[in-house]
Design a protein around this nucleic acid. Sequence first.
DNA 1: GCCGTTTTCGGCCCGACTGTTTTCAGTCG
Length: 574
Amino acid sequence: MSDKQTAMRIFKEMATLLELQGANPFKSKAYVKAARELQQHEGQPAEWIASGAIKEMRGFGKSLQEKLNELVETGKISEHEELRSSFPEGLLKILTIPGLGSKKVRVLYEELGIESVEDLEEACQTDKLLSIDGFGKKSQEKILQGIQQIRRYQGRHRLNQALPFAQRLLSDLQEQPDVQQLDLGGSLRRWKETVKDIDFVVATDNPEAVMEFFVNHPLAEHIIAHGSTKSSIMLNNGINVDLRTVTPKQYPYALMHFTGSKEHNTEMRRRAKDRGMKLNEYGLFKGDDLVECESESDIFQELDLNYIPPELREDRTEFEWAVEATHPPLVELSDIKGVFHAHSTYSDGAASLKEMAEATRALGYSYLGITDHSRTAYYAGGLSIEEVLKQHKEIDELNKEWDDFQLFKGIESDILGDGSLDYPDEILEQFDFVIASVHSQFKMSQDEMTARIIKAIEHPATTMVGHPTGRLLLNRDAYPIDIYKVVDAAAANNVIIEINANPYRLDIDWRILEYARDKGMLVSINPDAHSTKGLEDIQYGVGVARKGGLGPDHVFNALDLDTVREKLKTLRSS
DNA sequence: GCCGTTTTCGGCCCGACTGTTTTCAGTCG
């Protein structure tokens, strides 16, 4: 029995190995496409095979169906095993070095016997690459730099690592007189949970001047590329920034092109081709004639599509609905009326109850649901029953100070190993709401973990589930869990699922939100703030909600204070 | 390896920059 994640990993690895082998590149791409298709299907491979759903899945022909079948029945794919054994494992790691693709890696392996990043580093330091055609002094230097980069940064960055720098660059570029139009593009504009680099698109009649300013920006540690329409710099925190310039007339096409995603663009160009046109970053063309568009909306329209917001351009379901309808408005930061899930000095927060409340008010929110850790979370200063009661008294006192703002009594209760909550029922009843979260005992089977969380969801005291998969971006994978079953249980029990907005988590994953939405489930966009500054993380959660296609109606903390007060009461008694 | 009311074979998205060439392959997005 092999799960979806395993199948995806194996298919992607087969694609890479096929490329390394020099196989037909379209064959390799077919495996990548199949892996994407797997990701987007709810359920597990064994179920799809049993139900015959596999036959309907895009990109699964005879051969790939057989391979998936083999994987489910035997736990492996023989062709995958053969491919793996024909190359040393280290080559896969070498392929993650920027500038090295399958062709070059293969040459290095065959000519110099390079099998690992360490081999390669040594070879570059001793000028061994100079003996091979197509490699020179500069290649060696670039490779050494690339090795440092992957060692330090794994090649991807969390939003909080990229966004502040992007905003600084954006405002600096904005001030340049030659910059006529400017936007963030790429995965940052799409609010992907981690990004590889920062992309900018600029409309200008003087690209040289803009490029000159850009590559000499004080944040640039070194210049990776400096051309007349495309340049790249590396920031001192290891993030690459790409800037593309076009003429004002080309701008909407370029913005669309550099917003991506790659898969979305591929589909767009295919649609253009179907209609006898050609789409690239410079325009949409019928023969040699430009089809004039003033905005991205116009371009979509020419391809018989309604406008697709950047966050949704991932080639998932957007082409299906955009043919028929415009997407309902996505939730915005300004829709958010209040905050749940914040810690105070009672447990592991940096600010007092009062400081957190005042900071929340100052941001324009009208309520704060405070949730310190529960007693089992001793490492985080979890609250004893006495401390809970003391905190409730303090909250009652503080609430007398405001008539336009309210502190709600909450707790982030650990979900214990057996799925129970962390206080006796008579204590749990005294909270206005309870967030149930897993903080320990991650090493369970998927069935056990799923059952554990569902048990917590079924507890009448539970209002929300906190960071449902436990992942830490770029650091720790989600614990094994059937997230669809968890969502089903939450929907059935009127439990709200948290979008944990902390940029290290962004959990629940946006990919599940469309499913959750269609189940009628509410989410709450929660900062999990451990300081007053942490409250601002809500912006990242809003990005995730948008990416998941949610509007304000799907977000619990987009409700105003009075409604939330009422809702919490009914949720508690249901 | 997939896919098809233009197709069951011959397509499969498009362009910039680099480094090494002396006209281009490889890589990237």
